[in-house]
């Protein structure tokens, strides 16, 4: 519709009831679409007045645009608000998570400290061993509470810390500390292993139960009556009493030797070797690995012997030493 129609009632003079409508066509005007008008009528479903609104299209468009903008704005605000709340909740959750992680880290740190202390103690205890110097040096190196970590923990008490960064740093620190402790414990393990094998190599039990008939040192030979040096101890017992290896080692010699009769020599390592002579029987062979307490032979009187006994000799780097040092006292 490009033109507006208006109705004008005109009462005719002749008949009052007759009505004639004349339609006036308004001049065609080149109005833009925005200047055209529209009537909105509100009709109530009772006898109350109707409402008519005569509006420009432009106005309607403006109202529509404004209301759409309002809605969009409201929606934007609401969604932002929701977003904010979601983020807020998320953040809170992360914070609490982080706090728990921090707590765990602190706990671990404490634990690691304890482990380090334990390490120290172990080192002190084991420091009495052979490679004491080395271990004590390491011990000095193993001092606790290095300065960067201390400052870090102090930094953590500050409420303005960068949580993730701190956690990462602290974890890194913990990792380093753990690695260090692992290294330390490995050292201790190695040391203990060494000590252990040393202990295993050291003769420390009686080869047979019995009584010592002749000790280590100068004596008068029972065979020819001359003075001689006795390089071992003679332990007497009945024939065929089993002889036990006094330390772990490898059998290096099984055979007959003049004077000693049937003899067994075991190389125990760490310079130690043990010799068992006058056996009636040898039950090991050369090259065999033996454990402490294992039966290697039986008491006899082979060689130059005046009765059933075992000649037991302990040598360090081939030099015979007093075996009494390596026999536990009889209780």
């Amino acid at each position: 519709m490009t033109s507006e129609l208006t109705l004008k009632p005109i009462l005719s003079h002749n008949n009052m009831t007759l009505m004639r409508f004349e339609i006036f066509k308004k001049k065609r005007q080149n109005k833009s679409h925005f200047k055209k008008k529209i009537t909105l009528m509100l009709v109530p479903h009772d006898a109350k007045k109707t409402y008519q609104l005569n509006l420009y299209y432009g106005f309607i468009y403006i109202v529509l645009i404004i209301s759409i903008a309002c809605f969009a704005w409201a929606f934007h605000i609401i969604s932002k608000d929701i977003d904010y709340h979601l983020t807020f909740v998320d953040n809170q959750k992360l914070k609490s998570d982080m706090a728990s992680v921090m707590f765990q880290v602190k706990k671990d740190d404490k634990l690691l400290n304890q482990v380090a202390q334990l390490n120290q103690k172990l080192r002190i205890v084991l420091g009495l061993g052979s490679n004491r110097k080395e271990i004590l040096e390491d011990y000095a190196d193993n001092k606790l509470g290095s300065s960067p970590k201390q400052s870090l923990i102090a930094y953590l008490s500050d409420p303005n810390y960068q949580l993730t960064q701190i956690v990462r740093k602290n974890l890194e620190q913990l990792h380093q500390e753990a690695l260090k402790q692992e290294k330390n414990f490995k050292q201790i393990h190695f040391y203990l292993k060494h000590e252990c094998s040393l202990l295993l190599a050291k003769p420390s039990i009686w080869p047979i139960k019995g009584w010592i008939t002749s000790g280590f040192g100068e004596r008068i030979s029972p065979i020819n009556g001359q003075r001689e040096f006795h390089y071992g101890v003679d332990i007497a017992n009945q024939g065929n009493t089993p002889i036990h290896a006094t330390a772990d080692g490898i059998v290096t010699f099984v055979g007959w030797e003049r004077g000693f009769g049937r003899v067994i020599i075991i190389k125990n390592g760490y310079g130690y070797s043990t010799l068992f002579a006058h056996c009636s029987k040898q039950v090991v062979h050369e090259g065999q690995r033996v454990k402490r307490g294992e039966v290697i032979g039986y008491v006899g009187e082979t060689g130059w012997a005046t009765g059933y006994h075992l000649h037991y000799q302990v040598m360090i780097h081939g030099v015979p030493v007093n075996p009494m040092k390596y026999l536990p006292p009889i209780t």
Binding site: D46, A47, T50
Partner: peptide, 24 residues
């Protein structure tokens, strides 16, 4: 269906409908 007679209406004639609301 329905007939509504507004407040200012003046009618001379019969009305027949399902529902009639009269204000005039």
């Amino acid at each position: 269906s329905g007939v509504i007679i507004g407040e200012k209406a003046i009618i001379r004639g019969n009305i027949q409908a399902k529902q009639v609301i009269i204000g005039g």
